[in-house]
């Protein structure tokens, strides 16, 4: 059977079933990875409930402005990636590549500012061993930063795939297009995880 037929098989009413964006494997990865993060969020909530005063006091040492800047950077980056995928589907590879570069720039800015924030914490004597709040804060945000760093490599790969697409010809289910979607899905997962981390560590309440 032709692969594209297998993916978008006509239904009884004559409309084609939507194919899975990217490929099924990336969704397995996203679900498994988010399950692990969900587990960490649950443990954090447990510890927070056990020691709410300490967590509230410690959160006072976290600057919410950093959180806001990160969130805006990652949301902008994700928007650029969405536009890049859309442009790539229409065959506008030059525009798509430009959007990915912008997405990459926002993502890199996120990583660079994160290092400044960590440096500020360390110079103030706050480390992952300070207390339980900062144990979670450092471990979870560093793990997210590792995801984002891998994501920057993934965006570079995405750009390479975009530049390899045929120009000015709409593409939908080619291998290259699917890998572009896979890259975008990974980057959106990084963004989504950040939104939860932002709420946990930076928003007062």
């Amino acid at each position: 059977m032709v692969a594209s037929e297998a993916i978008s098989r006509p239904t009884a009413v004559g409309t084609a079933m939507r194919r899975v964006p990217g490929e099924p494997g990336i969704w397995i990865f996203v679900l498994l990875d988010m399950t692990i993060f969900a587990e960490m969020f649950g443990i954090f909530a447990w510890y927070r409930a056990e020691n709410s005063e300490l967590f509230r006091a410690s959160q006072g040492a976290v600057n919410p402005l950093y959180g806001l800047i990160y969130t805006l950077l990652l949301l902008s980056s994700s928007w650029c990636v969405v536009m890049a995928v859309s442009a790539a589907r229409k065959g506008s590879t030059a525009l798509s590549s430009e959007f990915v570069l912008w997405g990459l720039g926002f993502g890199a800015a996120f990583a660079v500012i994160k290092f400044f924030e960590y440096a500020g914490k360390f110079s103030a004597g706050i480390t992952p061993l300070t207390n339980e709040f900062f144990m979670f804060y450092f471990v979870m945000t560093v793990v997210h930063l590792l995801h984002a760093s891998v994501g920057l490599g993934v965006l570079l790969y995405m750009r390479k795939q975009i530049l390899a697409l045929p120009q000015r010809a709409p593409v939908d289910s080619s291998r290259g297009m699917r890998m572009i979607e896979v890259s975008a899905i990974y980057w959106h997962m990084v963004d989504l995880l950040w939104i939860v981390l932002f709420a946990l560590f930076y928003l007062k309440g």
Partner: peptide
């Protein structure tokens, strides 16, 4: 075996 991903050019049979 069903291929998971369509080839870059043309259908796969």
């Amino acid at each position: 075996v069903e291929p998971d991903v369509a080839p870059a050019v043309g259908p796969r049979v």
